[in-house]
Amino acid sequence: MARRSREQVSGFAELVEARSTALLRLAYAVVGDHQLAQDLLQEALVKVYVAWPRLRDESGAEAYARRTIVTTAISWRRRRSFHEPPMDVVPDSGGDGDQSDRIATHEVLWQQVRGLPPRQRVALVLRYYEDLSEAETADLMGCSTGTVKSQLSAALGKLRERVGPETGVLFPEDQAVTR
């Protein structure tokens, strides 16, 4: 197992430069903690480096990194902050008006998303933040579309229950979940 060639290191560096921010946001979305997200991103990128010769091209490498982030996030059950209970108190937005209301709404929603079980949170994030189809979400999570549907249904049910209508968050109808 030889060291990576200069060309391979250069290709890897290009991927890191181009896609790190998007990958960090995905990592943050699935673990809900900035420090953990940075750890997760680093772990995923190191795995990409190790696997580089078999990933063939940049799109393959990014797909591998994304899959690593998702599967690692699901398995990081021991990390305390990954499972912090959602906050009960709406944070002070520090101002008045629509802007501050919107910020407070996002924060309430986000805390509840963080409190979801990992698989539900990952399914939700891939479907509604990454805007993937159910089939693409299933592919990334390594499960069936039926599982994605059930995880999404459970996640949306909890959020509907916990994030009241007064917050103004519009949840998709179950029928609209399928794409």
Binding site: S20, T21, L23, A29, H34, L41, H106, E107, W110, F171
Partner: peptide, 22 residues
Amino acid sequence: MTTPLRDALTQRINQVGPAHPD
């Protein structure tokens, strides 16, 4: 004022600044 779930998630997650991996 209402915000679709997708927009709410996007606005919240995109607050994360750029990554600067070494």
